[in-house]
Design a protein around this nucleic acid. Structure first.
Length: 487
RNA sequence: GGCCACGUGGCGGAAUGGUUACGCAGCGGAUUGCAAAUCCGUCUAUUCCGGUUCGAUUCCGGACGUGGCCUCCA
């Protein structure tokens, strides 16, 4: 992939609530941070959305600024009370720390499998919270020193009143919120909005020694510390789901800006919309909770397995900020379109042989498609350009189509090679000679206008799982019959 | 209750102060003895009510509806 500095990226910034020209702090190191999973349970299809959306952004940034000039950090939260609860539940006979390790390891491994199947690139760094505890303790110290945090009832709390423009990202004023509307306000807090930076652990809970006793970090602290460690005190883009705007991202900003005396943590804040399942909010109690691995490996949703590339396209058919109703019809449409594109690529003559690999992997998108993608990832515009390429008739169109799909991560050399192989291999295990003979018998019958006999042969083959396609030779006008194995 | 999004054909889904892209489905045609596949063509839409304007789907106000956050859910 080449550096394409002519492209101007525009992004909708939650901070300003406007679409803005993207201007990185340093063009030789564009820095992106996205909140990753808390590894207490398998990732569901809603979790897949930010992973896919920001993977596309990562790819766009790499294309525009160069592969080695973009740093993408997506953390793994492996310390959390939900993990503790899960560990105790799933491994009641193990010592808690052992059980926690099992849960986080198993869940992290599955997450990696899931995102790989969704054709996502690996981020540049994937830090784990438990590897950054020292940094978290340092940041808490700093916040206490600067009078932005205080100790109360064994907890260290961030004092939201100590920050002038707390609430700027979510456009919230502290006194307007129904504090403790659904949760009892703890009396040790100066302000109901104060949030935990550090809390004490019981003997059985996981904990680390700190100046405030053996304890563990609050959730928001991790991202502030890990982003600083890998991207610096101020970086370009911070992403995540819409629901994280408040309180998570607001609190990250509070921690980072107050600790570093900065007015900004990230210059651009991007948030993806939520998804629903068949028109309803996904929840375990409604029975419409579906994980990525279930979609990939089971027939729980729509009575069939869905390939990762189909899930990816289904997700990208809607622009990232909009809500998605994730339903079977959407997956079927995505599958149909993607199959058509892949067929077109092969039909127009692109060959996925090892000898061509370098050449093929260097294929890129057309500038119009890139222009649409750079416009706040306008995928609808992008997709219409893909259809335009797919309706072309020349090898050039196949090159463009593949190059564009490759940039978006919807196909790559390997997946196309597999697709090509599957088409070639389908002849294995069937008696090609017999089929060819049957076809010629049928052509014979046809030439004698013996429709009955011809249909018998076609039906026999159909029963054997072979479907015939009649075509016409462009030059001679003679009938040509090809065949394929029906699923 | 506060705050934030959003409302475009049967469905998905952009764009736009001036004939509403693109796709799926449908319909019609080509091809075919019929079918499948393929190709070509094509119907249908801006939630409602006001206002600004020569002109509003777009801007403003209101109504209705949907979703989200205010709770360590992406």
């Amino acid at each position: 992939m080449t550096i394409d500095s002519k492209i101007k990226i525009k992004l909708y910034n939650t901070l300003s609530r406007k679409k803005q020209d993207f201007v990185p702090i340093k063009t030789d190191n564009v820095r992106l941070y996205v909140c990753g999973p808390t590894v207490y349970d398998y990732a569901h299809i809603g979790n897949a959305r930010p992973v896919i959306v920001f993977d596309v952004l990562f790819r766009l940034l790499r294309h525009v600024y160069g592969e080695n000039h973009v740093t993408y950090v997506r953390n793994i939260t492996d310390v959390d009370d939900k993990i503790n609860a899960r560990a105790a539940q799933d491994f009641p006979n193990l010592e808690l720390n052992e059980a926690i390790k099992k849960v986080t390891q198993k869940t992290t491994d599955q997450f990696h499998k899931d995102v790989k199947a969704l054709l996502c690139l690996k981020p540049s760094f994937e830090p784990r919270a438990t590897d950054h505890i020292d940094g978290m303790i340092e940041m808490v110290k700093l916040l206490i020193e600067k009078k932005h945090a205080y100790v109360a009832s064994g907890e260290v709390l961030f004092d939201v009143n100590s920050m002038k423009n707390y609430g700027a990202l979510s456009n919230r004023k502290l006194d307007e919120q129904k504090a403790g509307a659904r949760i009892k306000v703890e009396e040790h807090k100066k302000n109901p909005g104060d949030f935990v930076l550090w809390k004490l652990s019981s003997e059985s809970e996981p904990g680390w020694q700190s100046p405030w006793g053996r304890g563990r970090p609050g959730w928001h602290l991790e991202c502030s510390v890990m982003s600083e460690a890998l991207l610096g005190k101020q970086f370009d883009i911070h992403g995540g789901g819409l629901d994280l705007i408040f309180p998570h991202h607001e609190n990250e900003i509070a921690q980072s800006c107050c600790a570093h005396d900065n007015d900004k943590m990230a210059n651009y804040w991007l948030h993806n919309g939520f998804l629903q399942i068949e028109g309803k909010k996904m929840s375990k109690s409604d029975g419409n909770f579906i994980t990525i691995s279930e979609l990939l490996e089971s027939d729980k949703f729509g009575d069939k397995k869905w390939p990762g590339d189909v899930l990816r396209l289904a997700m990208l058919m809607t622009n990232y900020k909009e809500p998605i109703d994730f339903c079977v019809a959407r997956l079927e449409e995505a599958e149909k379109i993607l199959g058509k594109w892949k067929n077109t690529i092969l039909a127009l003559g692109l060959k996925f042989d090892e000898a061509n690999r370098v050449e093929i992997e260097a294929l890129g998108p057309c500038s119009k498609l890139l222009f649409a993608l750079a416009d706040d990832m306008n995928m609808s515009g992008v997709i219409s350009h893909l259809h335009r390429h797919a309706s072309g008739k020349k090898l050039h169109n196949a090159n463009r189509l593949f190059g564009s799909l490759q940039l978006l991560g919807l196909v790559n050399f390997a997946t196309m090679q597999e697709f090509q192989q599957a088409r070639e291999n389908q002849n294995q295990g069937v008696d090609v000679v017999l089929i060819e003979r049957q076809i010629s018998l049928r052509l014979q019958a046809l030439s004698e206008k013996n429709w009955q006999e011809a249909d018998i042969i076609r039906n026999e083959l159909a029963t054997a799982g072979i479907s015939l396609k009649d075509g016409k030779d462009e030059k001679t006008g003679e009938r040509i019959t090809s065949w394929e194995i029906k699923k």
